[in-house]
Structures are given as structure tokens and as C-alpha cells.
Amino acid sequence: MKKVIANREIDVNEEGYLVDFKQWDREVCECIAGECNVVMTEKHWEVIEYLQDKHHKDEPLSIRGIKKSGVINIKEFYELFPGGPLKKSTLIAGIPKPKSCI
């Protein structure tokens, strides 16, 4: 389905996650962040870039990975993306959220 983000039509799935990463840019990112009540700071960008890098290497995202990332510790991760840090940060990063098999 389509959703207008940053005045552009973007392809998203039922939960609002981007389907095509090529449509992601900083403007789209800031708009989605705004919808999640997150104001992007330098630290947020660093985390987003780390997650995108992991995703593009086909490496699974996990809280444990964050702990070992050297970018941020887990308490900070929760502070930057309150509520559900992995699901919110991946939404903002334009990549799929971590899933189980069902």
C-alpha cells in the first residue's frame, strides 16, 4: 500500500514499514520519527546507520547486537526510542522489524 510521507508516495506494508529501502532518505526518516514522537539527534542517526548497515549485511538485529555494537548501550537505546526500541528504530530506519516465524 501507499502512504504519503514527506509529501511523497511511499510503499509501506500493513504496519507502516517501508517495503523498498530505495525510497528512504533523511526527510522520510524525520517524518516517520515525528509520527513516533521521536526527535532525531546525532545519536539517533548513528543508531539508524548502524541498524541499516546490519540489515544490508543480512545480519539479524537484536538487543544483544546493540549491546555489542559500541554505538550505544541498551538503556540509552530505550531512551532514544521509548516503548519498543527495536520496532520503532527499524520503522524509522526504513528496514523490516525483527520478526519471529509467525
Binding site: 506494508n13 500493513e14 504496519e15 537484536s62 538487543i63 519498543g84 527495536l86 520496532k87 522489524k97 525483527p98 520478526k99 519471529s100 516465524c101 509467525i102
Partner: peptide
């Protein structure tokens, strides 16, 4: 208790189950 955002994490399964 799950580290994910639901017991069912894929939209089709969330709806069906």
C-alpha cells in the same frame, strides 16, 4: 513474555491467530 512486538509478529498471523 517476548522481546518482539507481539506473540505473532507477521501481520497475516496476527490477524488469523
Amino acid at each position: 513474555v517476548t522481546p518482539l512486538d507481539g506473540a505473532f509478529t507477521k501481520p497475516t498471523c496476527t490477524k488469523a491467530l
